[in-house]
Amino acid sequence: MVTTFVILTIVTLVSAIAAMSLRNLVHCALCLVLTFAGLAAFYLQLNAQFVGFAQILVYVGAVAILIVFAMLLTRNVDSTRQAILSPSWGVGIVGALLVFGAIVLSILCSTMVHRPALSETQVTVLAIGEQLMTNYVLPLEVIALLLTAAMIGAVIIALHEPTSESSAVQNPRLEPSVPSVPNPAQVPRTDHP
């Protein structure tokens, strides 16, 4: 039990750090997938089978694929030359460490550290389904509405803007604007992203 926990912790945290710090964007996304899988394993270890599989299905099967697609569609022309961190990176790191310290301190000081785990409850999918259709039916409907709205919204936002030739006459407002700072480095590269 402890060995599994240690291995899972190392895999999850190291891949999370890699996902946040690697230079190559696609490597970041692949490390992120490993983090998601590690979290799913944590859920399985905590007897939440359904949530673990749902995590893999949604995050690995959908969110990671979306992220990878977005990376390929927005290839950064200057990714190899510029710094990957923003100028105020020190503040960010210190802030994150402070947050971590505060949370850990409050965890260790609280009384629930000594709370024992209750008996081995195996939660069945049937029970989850019954709860979803009785107590949680309103949130379920709301989330369905939210997902539909998000899908329509995402499609509309990401739709192709009309190109300048077709739209210049009818609607000059939709013309794609030029980058604010003209930069010779921003010529699209012809090789691989």
């Binding site: 961190l85 949370i103 965890i107």
Partner: peptide, 25 residues
């Protein structure tokens, strides 16, 4: 014990926060 999981979760939160605050992309 419960706090093992909570500390892992706190570390993950801090990593995510650091990344969101510092990366340019």
């Amino acid at each position: 014990p419960l706090h093992y999981y909570l500390i892992v979760s706190a570390a993950l939160f801090a990593i995510g926060l650091a990344g969101a605050l510092t990366r340019r992309n």
